[in-house]
C-alpha cells in the first residue's frame, strides 16, 4: 500500500500540496503516483518566476515507461524549485513527500488549497483505481 500523508492536501492528478509557515506552498507527487510511474529518470523543472493558473501543466516527470505532466494545483507563481532532482530524479521515488518535493509557489490566494482533497478523500480516490 502506498503512503498517504495526512498533513498535506491532494489533487486528482496526484500532486500533493503543503502550506508552509512563510506562506509559500510546496508541491510534489504522491507516493501512489511515483509508484505508478516507476523509476523516475528525469524531471523538467519549471522556470522560477513563471506564473501559472490552476491545472496548467507546468513541468514534466519522466520514467522509462511514461512522461507525466505535473499540473499546477492552484493559481500562483513559482518561487523555488528542487534542483537536487536535476542530478538525482529518483529522490522522488525514495522520498516523495520530503526530499522529493518538486517546486514551491507563491499562491494568489491561500484559501484555494481548501478546495483540494484531504488525505481520506484522496485515499478513497486511489483505492478505486
Amino acid at each position: 500500500m502506498s503512503e498517504v500523508r495526512t498533513d498535506v492536501r491532494y489533487t486528482a492528478s496526484h500532486e500533493w500540496v503543503r502550506l508552509e509557515d512563510d506562506g509559500t506552498v510546496t508541491v510534489g507527487i504522491s507516493d501512489h503516483a511515483q509508484g505508478l510511474l516507476g523509476d523516475i529518470v528525469f524531471v523538467e523543472l519549471p522556470e522560477v518566476d513563471a506564473e501559472f493558473s490552476a491545472e496548467d501543466a507546468c513541468c514534466v516527470v519522466e520514467s522509462v515507461k511514461a512522461a507525466s505532466d505535473i499540473y499546477m494545483p492552484i493559481n500562483g507563481e513559482i518561487v523555488d524549485t528542487n534542483n537536487a532532482l536535476v542530478d538525482e530524479p529518483d529522490i522522488i521515488n525514495s522520498s516523495p513527500y520530503d526530499d522529493g518535493w518538486i517546486f514551491r509557489i507563491k499562491p494568489v490566494d491561500e484559501e484555494d488549497i481548501e478546495q483540494l482533497m484531504d488525505a481520506s478523500t484522496y485515499e478513497a480516490e486511489i483505492a478505486d483505481e
Binding site: 519522466e62 520514467s63 522509462v64 515507461k65 511514461a66 512522461a67 505532466d69
Partner: peptide, 12 residues
C-alpha cells in the same frame, strides 16, 4: 528516452 515518443506520449 522513449517517453518523448508518440507511442507513449500520444498527443503530447
Amino acid at each position: 528516452l522513449q517517453a518523448r515518443e508518440q507511442h507513449i506520449r500520444r498527443s503530447k
